[in-house]
């Protein structure tokens, strides 16, 4: 198998009579970020815990890089960095010691440990706390150390359960930046989140789960297109308020634009074809109109619409 991968085959979990996850078949391959969405109690964390052998499936199996997590947890998890349920590190250890422990247990060569630990702490902006006791840290600081601990061994797969939980807005932005950076390093990131804008910003693909069932798994563009008459939705933001004639005539007449909705005087939502070539052409057209375009990106609102539509369908 080439590249990192995560897979589940008929994965299911019962807690007594309650079915938390049922028949989950998921196959994710390659360097990308996949957002794992769903309301509270949908089965997200249960799935992630089964993917990391923290809880045992009632049915089916989970695989990391083709290795069964249940049958060969040690080798399967050696490929992954895992952050689930905001865990605690032994309070008397410093971040450096905690990462040293992770590096030692994961077999990072001794000579490389100081550099990797330093880099991981820099990535989560915790270098200046490197030698303080973790027990004295705030929840957000602990979360950063936990994220650093998932990176120290240069994993192929990252499994993150709501990684920005407990962080302030700046911390959340930094987590998003870290995730984006990891994707560039050729890693597969499987990340549960409640924050749809976060998923839109950092993820390439989304999987939606509700009441233990996978509703869909596809690229972000295809998902929004599938539930919006085959069109993707893009938000365009401008430096100046738009003239009504531009909104009603100039923009709708750009090749590929299917519909335009004025969200506020400086912002429109466009229904466009899902293909990148078409979107590039529309972007060029908007620039050519000289309207002071400052941003052109996949609409977070579109994902929210799909999410609400799909979740409420199950109610």
């Amino acid at each position: 198998m080439s590249g990192p991968s995560l897979a589940t085959s008929g994965l299911g979990k019962n807690f007594g009579a309650f079915v938390a996850v049922q028949g989950l078949d998921l196959k994710i391959e390659g360097a990308k970020c996949v957002g794992f969405l769903g309301p509270n109690g949908a089965g997200k964390t249960t799935t992630l815990k089964m993917l990391t052998d923290m809880i045992f499936p009632s049915r089916g199996e989970a695989f990391i890089n083709g290795l069964s997590v249940r049958q060969d947890r040690k080798r399967a998890l050696s490929h992954a960095g895992v952050l689930i349920e905001s865990p605690e590190i032994y309070p008397s250890l410093s971040p450096t010691e905690a990462l040293e422990m992770v590096a030692e247990l994961r077999g990072v060569p001794r000579g490389e440990q100081p550099r990797r630990i330093r880099t991981a702490l820099e990535e989560v902006k915790m270098s200046e706390w490197a030698h303080q006791k973790v027990g004295r840290f705030s929840k957000g600081m602990k979360q950063r150390i936990q994220i650093a601990s998932t990176l120290v061994h240069d994993p192929e797969v990252l499994i993150l359960d709501e990684p920005s939980t407990g962080l302030d807005p700046r911390g959340m932005a930094e987590v998003r930046a870290i995730v984006r950076e990891q994707r560039k390093h050729g890693r597969l990131i499987f990340m549960s989140s409640h924050i749809l804008s976060e998923v839109t910003e950092v993820c390439d693909e989304v999987a939606l789960i509700d009441r233990g069932k996978l509703l869909f798994y596809d690229t972000l563009t295809n998902v929004t297109a599938r539930f919006n008459g085959g069109n993707a939705q893009v938000d365009a933001v401008f430096a100046r308020p738009l003239d009504p004639s531009v909104v009603n005539q100039a923009i709708p007449h750009l090749p590929g634009v299917k519909a335009v909705e004025l969200l506020d005087p400086k912002r429109v939502r466009l229904a466009v074809p899902p293909g990148p070539e078409d979107q590039a052409q529309i972007l060029e057209g908007l620039v050519a109109l000289k309207l002071g375009l400052v941003s052109f990106k996949e609409s977070a609102g579109a994902l929210e619409d799909v999410y609400m539509q799909q979740i409420s369908r199950g109610d």
Binding site: N65, R75, H79, P91, L93, M101, L105, G107, E156
Partner: peptide
């Protein structure tokens, strides 16, 4: 494993875990 050095044997891991747990 890929991405890191050789994964230590179970005995080495137990010893290393013991060291950090003892420190705690």
């Amino acid at each position: 494993p890929s991405g890191a050095g050789a994964l230590p044997s179970d005995e080495h891991q137990a010893f290393r875990l013991m060291r950090f747990q003892l420190r705690d």
